[in-house]
Design a binder for these strands. Structure first.
Lengths: 123, 123
DNA sequence: TTAATGATTCTATCATTATGGAAATATAGA
DNA sequence: TCTATATTTCCATAATGATAGAATCATTAA
């Protein structure tokens, strides 16, 4: 992960509405939710939600796929895993001590992967 | 972890200088570094660094301890662990699928804990 | 107490981001 | 086509954040 990319991701999440959107999408991973469903659940105006979804997409935190008149947004788990690595890697490496680090592994089950393939969520 | 706290932490890290400071401190965990050492390594003016260190402290991401004329800053690992949990918990819980999640465990070794006790880094 | 060093606060300026109404752009069904 | 629905873009306003020089505070040694 690059420095700029990490900042983009962190900035994308450092906003109340976007953080709420992301956590909502995490719950609904891997299929995701339509923009209209997100707006309803979070009580956000369409324009505001669209603005925030663009930010999240640009950061690579969510992907989108069109399905009829609906656009489904889903979280990109790998982006989060890379961010966590960027933030926690090399802990204690410059001191006499050391840390035991373990990357977060939020990996969909085989069943979930299959479901995702049936409705792919490409950016 | 509370919503507001997560946003405070994310916003603190979503800035180039602060992210660089944090990652530098992670490398130097658990003892940390003096403000002057951070400023020198990152090429930041004192006033600017002080401003950013205050932000990181306020977010609970770093702690500080005075030692003579130096103030040492060290990362608060537990804050990062809580943030990661806040961002990744309940993944897939609302869909038919499920995720295997694993919290990052950046835990100092016994030896590191002992070293930290000898030079405590209280906020 | 004086001088030197480390660190923070004050202050003004500059830059970025959030908000949401209104208009514009798809898409699907009749 | 025409219409309703889903979503995005445009835009102006408001709010927040970053920067760093200068002044100030804190600590230590002489």
């Amino acid at each position: 992960m690059q420095n700029k990319q990490a900042i983009t991701i962190l900035a994308a999440l450092a906003q109340e509405s976007r953080l709420a959107v992301y956590r909502l999408l995490i719950e609904h991973a891997p299929e995701g939710l339509a923009a209209s469903a997100i707006a309803e659940k979070l009580g956000l105006p369409n324009a505001t939600l669209s603005f925030h979804l663009k930010e999240l997409s640009h950061a690579g935190l969510v992907s989108s796929r069109q399905s009829g008149r609906f656009i489904y947004y889903a979280p990109v788990i790998e982006a989060m895993n890379e961010l966590i690595g960027y933030l926690t890697d090399h802990c204690c490496s410059q001191s006499g001590s050391s840390c035991s680090t373990a990357a977060t592994k939020c990996v969909p089950t085989k069943r979930a992967v299959a479901a995702n393939k049936r409705r792919p969520a490409s950016a």
